[in-house]
């Protein structure tokens, strides 16, 4: 990015109208991916000078325990439902979960879920890191996920959405192909980086379960209805444009007993509708990049 400038120069402007259509496999209209955030939060993390971790003095019992619900209860409930309806997760992973609760990571890997990095812990932020430190967490992420799952990460969602001006350049340099940190579009698109190739993968804050439940204060059924409307619109427009819909989840939220049943209607709706390419983020990135290079050759 152009550090310090008003326009960070992240990507070229490209209006939605008049773009070449993105074709998805099987003539599908919208690529749908679910992103479970599999996270580990520390009870007593060190302080980052640029952002507090917990709202309360440590231990923030409710904050910590609420998130710990994910690894004891929520993940298993959410994963079983996704599997029942044929959705593979694209995991935004606190890579230290590979050490703390390898059972969750192994379970997701055995289901055929993809992993990308969401930092080491969701209580360690990138703000204030120098280049050496930021390289260390990227290298740690690549190494840790490879050792735990055999997978090579292709994507990045910054830990707790904390960035530095060099994050995108660095992940591209390490061979990652997509970032989930940019929210400017419903289609993938190129990101300006110093070297290599990086695309933006439409993730979402608007339909993220955290936003649904704690920013917009939706009831479980209202959130489900929101996702269905979001899907229906992107599927309809996708006939002309080829769209991407991400459902970012935290199992300590969606996996609660009053929410998971309402969410099942969303998965059933998408499957029954038939217009969705139900896939993983890395597969979308691979497909998009292959399509783009073919277009470039022509």
């Amino acid at each position: 990015m152009r550090e310090g400038e008003g326009d960070p120069g992240l990507y070229p402007y490209s209006p939605y109208r008049g773009r070449p259509k993105l074709e998805w496999p099987g003539g599908k209209k919208v690529a749908v991916w679910i992103s479970p955030n599999l996270e580990f939060y520390e009870l007593d993390p060190p302080a980052n000078p640029h952002r507090k971790s917990w709202a309360k003095p440590h231990p923030d019992v409710v904050g910590y325990a609420h998130r710990d619900y994910a690894n004891r209860v929520g993940h298993w409930r959410m994963a079983e439902m996704m599997e029942k309806h044929g959705f593979k997760g694209s995991v935004s992973l606190s890579v230290a979960l590979c050490q703390h609760v390898p059972e969750v990571v192994e379970h997701a890997n055995a289901l055929g879920w993809e992993f990308f990095s969401h930092g080491i812990y969701n209580t360690r932020y990138s703000y204030g890191m120098d280049e050496v430190q930021e390289r260390a967490i990227i290298e740690d992420s690549i190494r840790t996920v490879r050792e735990a799952t055999g997978q090579t990460i292709k994507g990045w969602l910054a830990p707790a959405l904390t960035h530095t001006p060099r994050t995108l350049d660095l992940i591209a340099e390490y061979g990652l192909t997509y970032t989930c940190d940019l929210y400017h579009d419903d289609q993938p698109g190129p990101v300006a980086v110093r070297s290599g190739t990086l695309i933006s993968m439409p993730y979402s804050l608007e339909v993220n379960d955290h936003y649904g439940f704690f920013i917009y204060n939706m009831s479980p059924r209202d959130y489900a209805e929101t996702l269905i409307r979001h899907y229906d619109r992107l599927a309809a427009e996708g006939a002309e444009s080829g769209t991407v819909m991400c459902i970012p989840l935290h199992s300590y939220l969606i996996g609660q007993p009053h929410r998971i049943g309402a969410f099942e209607r969303v998965l059933q709706h998408i499957v029954d509708d038939g217009r969705a390419w139900i896939t993983r983020s890395g597969d979308i990135a691979d497909h998009y990049l292959a399509q783009r290079s073919k277009t470039a050759e022509i």
């Binding site: 009870l43 703390h100 204030g128 050496v132």
Partner: peptide, 20 residues
């Protein structure tokens, strides 16, 4: 500008919880 090097130490990064 860099963070305190200890910010990249993870003393409880092992199997199980980060407390007893």
């Amino acid at each position: 500008m860099a963070l305190d090097p200890a910010y990249l130490d993870y003393p409880h990064r092992h199997k199980g919880m980060d407390h007893g």
